[in-house]
Design a protein around this nucleic acid. Structure first.
Lengths: 140, 140
DNA sequence: GTGCCACTTCAAGTCAACTTGAGGTCAAGT
DNA sequence: ACTTGACCTCAAGTTGACTTGAAGTGGCAC
């Protein structure tokens, strides 16, 4: 197995070195030695980083991701967990679609003021009742 | 106009008093006097809070929301801004749908391991290429 | 008039996922 | 041998939207 130093991993994965160190500290990846000071990673770390990126994109926290490949060697990705996350994502998507439609309407609504537009009013009520939840943060 | 004290506003809006104070400090709402120490709000603050909730649900930051009803008296909600936000939301929705579908597949995928499932592999590549972005935080 | 208790202020803490900065080390090139 | 520069560690800072805690105040019921 060919080793990569941190700069190579960073370059090939696009993940900053500071993040690699951070992930290592969190136990998400492991370096298996040093060349001088420099961490050496085995090539498989790249796959690991992809998995982490995937998990993050799916809405898992770093801690959750850590749990997935914690015990039992190979990534123990629980299918139930995936299904649950898919459901959660689906609920979020529904809310966001409602929101998007409302916004689109409001953007073209002919009513002189939003306070006279029924669609806007409906949105307003939905939002203040908490039905809309707290929103996505369109990532970095 | 009948006044409400902070406890009444909190109860009727569901927004914690600490948050009301925080919003006031940020200039998002205004109290127009005190009864002893207690802030007095006019009833219109409830509508204001709905607008804030709506804005948050749509993905606006508190600062952005502040700008909307900053200048010029009545809520100056820019239609272009709404349309832009709707577009942004839409892009996010697309990513999330791809993610959800991928997760659903992975959850039922018959391949012995995810590393042998083409769909999973595809997702993995998408995620690590950054195409998936950073995810929604399904609100509190 | 006195005690209660919900309110007040202000500073600091929280959370997640990193980033930044200061000060140090080491392998490699000249 | 010496310089260079990319790496190292460890602590602290960042962002956004709040929450929490300590210490103080004042209206109202008794």
């Amino acid at each position: 197995m060919q080793d990569l130093d941190i700069a190579q991993v960073s370059r090939q994965s696009g993940v900053p070195a500071s993040t690699l160190r951070f992930y290592e500290e969190k136990g998400l990846i492991a370096s298996h030695g040093r060349h001088g000071l420099r961490r050496q990673y085995s090539a498989s770390v790249l796959e690991r980083l992809s998995l982490i990126a995937l998990g993050r994109a799916a809405g898992f926290s770093l801690d959750e991701i850590g749990l997935m490949f914690a015990e039992g060697g190979r990534p123990r990705i629980d299918r139930q967990l995936l299904a649950d996350k898919a459901e959660e994502l689906d609920r979020t998507i529904r809310r966001m679609i409602a929101m998007r439609n409302g916004l689109r309407h409001a953007a073209v609504c002919p009513a002189p003021s939003h306070s006279e537009c029924p669609t806007f009013q409906r949105l307003l009520r939905a939002a203040s009742s908490g039905r809309m939840g707290t929103p996505p943060k369109t990532g970095r």
